[in-house]
Design a protein around this nucleic acid. Structure first.
Lengths: 172, 172
DNA sequence: CCGGTAAACGAAGCATACTCCCTAAATAAA
DNA sequence: TTTATTTAGGGAGTATGCTTCGTTTACCGG
């Protein structure tokens, strides 16, 4: 690719950096690497889903709804791990495309109940293999053993830091 | 550096049906977990940086500039792993706060050269410990051994999938 | 029943992170 | 030298993921 890739540099000067300088270089910061990894996953997802015009969060919401269950916007948003207002935007876009419907609840007139449409169900069925291919490609560089370890470590961090996120995962 | 090694037994997809069930639940999808982990890191960063009004990418840019080197917007953007236009937005915000300056290059009149200001240098020095604490908290749930393994696996994935991101490091 | 609190949502605003399309300038090719 | 291509940047548009503030509704203690 390119020889001025900073990631390539991290092979060279990993010398006797002291503890206090541990995070001096960008590519030694776990948060930075996670951000890059997230970017990479979104890139793979978009690439595999070709012209389907779908994003990971949108597909996540449709996945949760795929069973046919109705839920309000807050429940749906937290179940995919996004903020209430961010979720509302995503839901609006999916409604605009006819993949779900939003009807006022009769039990609680503050709430809007979300339900996937038939078009939504068909859409998920069609796109699911593409999503799966993106996930496969994402972990492809790792061996089976490494993948297991990777999942274990991520889950450990997510579990421990769940409340640190501003959109804690709802217990679905 | 790319591990397309056929000796790795990450075989091609086995049976389509099994594959599609593997990622059926959201919390079994690596991409979903990475997204959550990224959210968590941003949350920790913002929390540790208190009222400093700084984001990981902004701090990353200032870090790269901290040495005093001048560079154009594209070089700066790719060096922190963001897209050209996203980077331009970030740079504009940092310029607005007086943490860096943007001057037209004389060698290449298309380019704007970015240089950190004294205020920017002081700012980075002040905020760096907070950033470091956020990184520490992020990996705190892991043991030392697990951290090493975590870094190794992430780096392996980032290296292998570098071009998959829409903002490949050092490329484009 | 009534008043305070909490929940569900909406609107507006900001930051990241892309897309596509455009201009201008530098460089490579003819 | 003229032409073609590439490169740097800007502008507009979209999506995610937050913030704060405000409105309506539900619920609970007195």
């Amino acid at each position: 690719m390119n020889e001025q890739n900073p990631l390539d540099d991290n092979k060279a000067p990993r010398s006797g950096k002291v503890k206090s300088r541990k995070y001096r270089e960008l590519w030694n910061r776990p948060g930075y690497l996670i951000r890059r990894l997230h970017q990479i996953h979104v890139g793979l997802f978009v690439e595999e889903c070709g012209g389907e015009d779908i994003t990971p969060v949108q597909f996540g919401m449709l996945s949760v709804l795929q069973g046919g269950e109705e839920m309000d916007q807050l429940t749906l948003s937290t179940s995919v791990g996004v903020d209430r207002t961010s979720g509302a935007d995503v839901i609006r876009r999916l409604e605009r495309r006819g993949l779900l419907v939003r009807t006022p609840s009769e039990r609680d007139r503050r709430a809007k109940l979300i339900r996937i449409t038939e078009a939504g169900v068909a859409y998920v069925k069609r796109v699911r293999p593409m999503m799966a291919r993106a996930q496969e490609r994402f972990v492809e560089p790792l061996t089976d053993t490494e993948r297991e370890e990777f999942y274990r470590l991520i889950n450990k961090m997510v579990d421990a830091n769940n409340t640190a996120s501003r959109a804690p995962m709802g217990a679905i």
